[in-house]
Structures are given as C-alpha cells and as structure tokens.
C-alpha cells in the first residue's frame, strides 16, 4: 500500500452497512457494520471486495452513512430528515442498478453537492423482488434549498431524463404510512 501521505483523504469517514433479512431475528440484529473508509483508495478497496448490488439476494440492503450516523430513521441525525427516492423497475437490476448505486456512492464520497453536502447523511440500497430502490438521505426535510439542490444534482449525476421524476419524502411521513403512500414533499 502507498504511504499514508500519498493517499487521498475524503472529507468524511463513511461506514458501509449490510442488512440481510432474517425474520427470526430483530431488525437491528440483521444490520451489520462492514467497514469504514476515509480515503479514495480505501473506498475502492472496499468496493472491489463486496458483492455488486445486482448480485445480492432479495431482502438485502447496503447503506453507506457518515461515520456516527446509523442507517435508520430513529438516529437523531436522520429523524428530522428525509430521502430522495429512486424506485427501479425489475428489469433495471441487470441493466442499470450497479451503475446507479456506484454513481450514488461517488456523489457521497466526492461531496458532490457543494456546501449542501453537509446535509447528506448517507444512502440506502434496497434489493427487493418487487423492484429495487436507491435513496439519498438528508438530515433536515425542512431545508428546502439544500434538499432541492441535492435532488437536482443527484438526478443529473444519475443521468435521468427530464421526464423521469424523483421524489423526496420526509422520514416522519414514511414512518407513519406504507412507502407507496408517503407523499412527496419535493420532486425534481
């Protein structure tokens, strides 16, 4: 490995979490911290050692969050926030999921949202039979300027067409309704 002074430090240390659905265990017990990274080099070492998103089985999640924030609504740094949610069609798992998830990770570790990057808590990938989902979580759903800036940049980075709409939902709304019913607070 190169000496530490030649590594490229990230602005934040990020923790990768893995969730594997085991109904015999409590939700929190199925959530495992995989590793933490704080350099560009560490990030790629991690990425090259884990399964691609498209190879995970249904019910599994990946989450990449800033160190110190747990990937759940209840964390004090998430609970007033929300998420930009992209729901994928089933066939996109094999055509686009890996590209979209990697792009999401690069947006996070590269601090792509200018000064609003500090609003970002992390990102979550859900592998589901009905259709996979990718979301970027931010810490304050009422911060309209920050949330909209993040949404616009994120949509552009994903290469989504102008016709594709992605929505932002406050966790407080998602927690009290099923996902499909939670209303969009913002759209881009």
């Amino acid at each position: 490995a190169p000496p530490a002074e030649q590594l490229h430090p990230l602005q934040n240390r990020w923790a990768l979490w893995f969730f594997k659905n085991d109904r015999s265990r409590a939700w929190h017990d199925n959530l495992q911290l995989v590793t933490k990274v704080d350099t560009v080099e560490d990030f790629w070492a991690m990425y090259s050692h884990i399964q691609l998103a498209s190879k995970l089985s249904s019910g599994c999640d990946y989450a990449l969050f800033k160190d110190g924030i747990e990937p759940m609504w209840e964390d004090s740094r998430n609970k007033r926030g929300g998420r930009w949610l992209m729901s994928l069609a089933k066939q996109q798992r094999h055509s686009e999921l890996d590209r979209l998830w990697l792009e999401t990770l690069l947006c996070l570790i590269g601090e792509s949202f200018e000064e609003h990057s500090r609003e970002v808590c992390g990102a979550v990938l859900n592998i589901r039979t009905k259709g996979d989902k990718i979301a970027v979580w931010t810490r304050e759903a009422e911060n309209q300027t920050g949330v909209l800036h993040i949404g616009r940049v994120y949509k552009e980075r994903l290469g989504l067409s102008a016709k594709t709409i992605i929505g932002y939902q406050a966790h407080a709304d998602t927690a009290t309704k099923s996902n499909s019913l939670a209303k969009n607070k913002f759209v881009v």
């Binding site: 080099e41 570790i109 990057s117």
Partner: peptide, 20 residues
C-alpha cells in the same frame, strides 16, 4: 480545505494496483 472529488477523478483510482 474541503475535499471534493469529481467522478472522473474518483474513477481513475478504481483499478489502481494499490487498491486490489
């Protein structure tokens, strides 16, 4: 200063030998 990296810069490191 803030450590911001664009996607091309980050992708350049993907297959560097030190990362494998």
């Amino acid at each position: 200063g803030k450590k911001q990296y664009d996607r091309e810069f980050l992708l350049d490191f993907q297959f560097m030998p030190a990362c494998i």
